[in-house]
């Protein structure tokens, strides 16, 4: 007679509201703690975007500033720094989205062709290593490697590729290149993980029948592996392109200096500088809000595109 009662116990739908609540009170306590955290740290700051529409002063309260409507927004759109900042943002994001996106795919494909499994695993393990370095440490290394007497200049000099050494980060023309290469160095192995996993998920029978049909390895890679991981490629590309206005703040913040500021000031850095460092809180919040809105629209668009193209979405 014990068993039926236990079954009733695990299907609480038949009980009254209060009895159900009592039965699951430990879960409710935990869920409420999570909700409380979200409300404090994610919802309480939300009304603060009011300062984007007012003249906020630090000495006064958030809602004390006079309402000025879209003044800060129109000021931002006519900001003489805006074209340059946008070009920098789009250029660095664009490089990451094109070259920075393709290189991990090529790496994953080449890794897949390695026959010795232990060697393959070793390459993979080492390829992750730079991901775990902080940008502060890597920035320090980069400043050292790119300095006048640093590793890169020494090697280029020994190979007689350059006549006089230059500190790469002091020349604004090299900045995008340094940003791209340091990103590649740090994240190629890490970003390849999803592609490697996708390759592992391709049906092995396809390779077997292709072998029977006399396909060589390049043909197999071209006609089986690449189409097999195409959905992964598509969804990651679409997802990342929604964040084209965002930059890797830590990377740029560590590598930038006054000599390369012309090419290193991206939107995120600009918002931070005018906000925290120059104290123009209202203006900075307006810039940040504009960016968020544009990003959200891009995300909704790319989600639609992804739905059409691959049948899968990342927003539920």
């Amino acid at each position: 007679m014990d068993k039926p009662r236990a079954v009733v116990h695990v299907s609480p739908r038949k009980k009254t509201f209060f009895a159900r609540l009592m039965e699951q009170w430990p879960l409710q306590v935990i869920a409420l703690m999570g909700a409380a955290w979200l409300i404090i740290f994610s919802y309480v700051p939300l009304p603060g975007i009011y300062i984007a529409f007012s003249n906020y002063k630090v000495t006064e309260g958030v809602f004390a500033g006079a309402f000025v409507g879209l003044k800060h927004f129109s000021e931002f759109l006519t900001d003489k720094n805006l074209p340059n900042v946008l070009i920098n943002t789009l250029a660095i994001s664009g490089l990451n989205l094109s070259i920075g996106f393709v290189v991990p795919i090529i790496f994953a494909l080449l890794l897949n062709e390695l026959k010795n499994l232990r060697y393959k695993r070793m390459v993979q393990t080492i390829s992750y290593l730079p991901h775990f370095l902080s940008w502060v440490v890597l920035g320090g290394f980069l400043i050292s490697w790119t300095s006048e007497y640093g590793l890169i200049n020494q090697i280029l000099f020994q190979l007689k590729l350059i006549k006089t050494p230059t500190y790469l980060l002091s020349d604004e023309n090299y900045f995008w290149g340094v940003a791209l290469f340091s990103h590649l160095w740090k994240e190629t192995g890490w970003n390849a993980i999803l592609f490697i996993a996708a390759i592992a998920g391709v049906n092995p029978e396809l390779y077997e029948s292709a072998t029977l049909d006399g396909a060589n390895r390049f043909q197999k890679a071209r006609y089986i592996t690449v189409p097999g991981i195409a959905p992964t490629i598509a969804i990651l590309f679409i997802l990342q392109s929604a964040y084209i206005l965002s930059s890797n703040f830590d990377q740029i913040y560590v590598l930038r200096n006054t000599l390369n500021a012309n090419r290193s000031t991206v939107l995120d850095i600009y918002t931070y500088r005018i906000g925290i460092q120059l104290g123009r809180f209202s203006y900075s919040t307006a810039v940040g809000l504009t960016k968020s809105v544009v990003s959200l629209i891009l995300l909704l668009i790319t989600n639609k595109v992804s739905e059409r193209a691959t049948g899968s979405t990342f927003l539920r």
């Binding site: 979200l38 919802y43 700051p45 603060g48 925290i276």
Partner: peptide, 27 residues
């Protein structure tokens, strides 16, 4: 879990909206 939908919605919204750096700093 009672109210599961509410809890999930509460969280999902935070993935797309934030008050930005300055209001967060004040918090």
């Amino acid at each position: 879990l009672m109210g599961r939908r509410f809890y999930m919605t509460l969280g999902i919204i935070t993935m797309f909206f934030s008050g930005g750096l300055i209001p967060y700093y004040m918090l």
